[in-house]
Design a protein around this nucleic acid. Sequence first.
RNA 1: GGGCGAAUAGCUCAGCCUGGUUCAGAGCGCCUGCCUUACAAGCAGGAGGUCGGGGGUUCGAAUCCCUCUUCGCCCACCA
Length: 898
Amino acid sequence: MAASTRTTGRTELSSRYDPTGLEGPLYEGWVEAGLFHVPAADARRPYVIVIPPPNVTSVLHMGHGLNNTIQDVLIRRRRMQGFDALWIPGTDHAGIATQNVVERQLGEEGLTRFDLGRDAFVARVWDWVREYGDQIITQLRVIGCSCDWERTRFTLDEGLSRAVREVFVRLYEKDLIYRGRYIINWCPRCGTALSNEEAEHRDHQGTLYRIRYPLADAPEEAVEVATTRPETMLGDTGLAVHPDDERYRDLVGREAILPLVGRALPIVADGYVDPAFGSGVVKVTPAHDPNDFEIGQRHGLEPLDVMTDEATMNEAVPEPYRGLDRLEARARVVADLEAQGHLIRVEEHAHSVGRCYRCDTIVEPRLSEQWFVRMKPLAAPALAAYQAGELRFHPARYGKIYQNWMENIRDWVISRQLWWGHRIPVWYCRADGCGEVVVSRDDPDACPACGGALERDTDVLDTWFSSWLWPFSTLGWPEETEDLEAFYPTDTLVTAPEILFFWVARMAMAGYEFMGRLPFTDVLLNGTVRDHLGRRMSKSLGNGIDPIEVVELYGADAMRFTLVRGAPLGTDLQLNNEDLEEAFRPGRNFANKMWNAARLALPHLHSEPGLDPEDGAVSRALADRWIRSRLATVGVQVDAAFEEFRLHEAAEACHAFVWGDFCDWYLELAKRRLGEDASGRTEAAATLSLVMRGWLSLLHPIMPFITEAIAGRLPGAEAGTLVTGPWPSFPADWRDEEAEAAIEALREMVGAVRALRAEYRVDPGTPLAIRLGAASDALARALAEEKESALRLAGISSIGPLEDDADTPGAHAVLRSGGELFIPLEGVIDLKRERDRIAEEVRRTSDLLRRTEGKLSNEGFLGGAPAEVVDREREKRDSLLEQRARLEEKLHALRGSP
RNA sequence: GGGCGAAUAGCUCAGCCUGGUUCAGAGCGCCUGCCUUACAAGCAGGAGGUCGGGGGUUCGAAUCCCUCUUCGCCCACCA
């Protein structure tokens, strides 16, 4: 325990919990003891979680903090319960993100990846990964994550790469992977295709341009078309109207002239066109719009790609526009249209625009030859599993979102025009007229058809094409490994809702396709961490909180507790990023409270030689019976909360118990018996030790460090660790209604005295001589044993019998648990004030009584409510009647006094 | 256009699924008094809420249903 100087200037063991230097060594000890490692051979009762692999480029942020804390809490509890709890860690090669990082680095040297060439560039990325790639892994240790580090995987590892390749080949052989020219989302900055999920659509206040296209056979006539992307008109190859649109019936089959270009555009009729939108005439640009592409297919309108990979206008457009960026071209086109009298008008138009999820550049829908996965056949079993209840989402509402996406699933573009990633295992024969395409698990040397030279596809695969295999590729698939046998399927997946489609749904599909069953049964979706203004924490806003900084300031436990308690499943969590102390105060204060409770308890426990905590289970002392009863109750609550993934409730229940019951009352009551020559000292110490071990265990999954540190100092705990349990289960016969009622009555009495003291501003140092009458059995029982503690806690010098003391000025209270309290307060009491106060009590009681009597006189209630509810209501009425009678008596007496 | 979520104390949020416990709880903040030898990162006491509005179901609604308002999120090929 660290020593430091207290604010008062006295030097002693620190009264403030300082986690510095305590957490690291504990963690190292756990790892060295191999407590997180689970060999397949030993796994009898596995419980498995695979980490959502963070990007190898990432540094830990609070979102990771929340997500991984939740996983660690689940894993640690299962481990304590005796499961072979395996948490598989690793990182994702993150194609675009990582390539971007290294390209940026090159940029600072004035180089591009093309200057290096493919092989050198990839080598350079590997260098980067080897140097910085384990940063986030290291950081996960700092926040206490109990992953099996011997199993750390990387999506570009040799083994995982083999899995990727196997999957590609198998799907190709099943005709579930195909190559084709379709409209895809293209990021001109990253220079690659993106999947639908990687294009984020956001509302955008844009402009709608209305343009006239003259008719070929009647140049004085024209039709009006509307577009938000005028530059694409250079690629128009037709116009379309709705087949039932009377206005344009005679146009179908004729041609219009494309302004600025002069090309003749056939006018076709197609059901896609909405006659009510704009003019009801659509320009058809098959190479730059998915709908137009389909219209074009139906009517034989050729696609004309007018852009380069960088989204500048290409050779297919008239000379003045060539080489212009798409936005420059847009301005130029609009200006020229206006100059030539073809621009009818422009108007504001709200629509949504897709942006690259990696660099926020506006994506260009563009015709391109890419590799696709046919998703419908893969989705079917994964969807059925959900509908059959085999896959559960928490919160459940995410299930509907999953279902909706699965039902409307579209094919997945998996090729990326990048260098960093799994290279597509496809070779094309270069021999004239051969056309052989080789898709192979092993690199082929020559064309198997003609023996000609082969050229490998230059593209790599979407990063998620390796992620979706994660639950089994990390276990050695496609080899039939012992690990796979022992640990697949996994149990719980904890992740963020943003990647429900990217990752969760695809893993479900891959699990079925390649392993024949779901990869996990429960999916927890954790919320988003936001700043105090409710904004998402992000690098660009600079409003993030560094978990490592928080750990350095307040400890990992404080951070974990704050996160778990503050974030009920699926709800967002707001943290003040400008005041870390405020943000993490709840956890820090709680850790401090525990620390100080230990400071009080431990010396007493160690002054009892040979103390056996198990003796605490049989102590008959009232306070001991009470705290055991409370602990047993809390144990059940915490267990139930964990089972249903309500982690915040478990945290809350522990907090309320440790602070409100254990520290506030049990320790205070125990002080009397822990005195040097007190009788029952051994029993008290044993109970204290036993109960502490109990709640330290309950809290260990959430706050592993401080609980372990304290538990390690309990008597008889030298050899043990909380990490491996056991998870506590308290005997049902610890529940003790009598003891609970007694201590509850004691608390009420002490509270009443304290309230009256505060009400009349009696100095805390002034002892009061109180009088007590008609005490309930519960209170009498409590006082018989704990009178001394009650005196100390309430600041009472004596408890005398209640007499007819109407003449004595003082304060009165009627206890709910039964009993009447009088505090003579000569010279202090204000009679009028006391009368008012009691009158107010009478009013309050009468209000309650009125409600209760209202119910009891309502036949509907008597007939409709369950008997026990009615009984409870009757008891309540009787008690209230009694209380009110007493209070009115007092009021009467006070009115009669001077 | 479709779907979902949220609205409870000054702030951040529990409670709602499975309606009924002595006037709806916590943390933080606020007020008053205390360094009472585990803890001032604390202790004691206290103020503060017509549970977003309206309607309905019920003997009884923060809780179930409908509706409105305001925020937020997701999906979608409206040129």
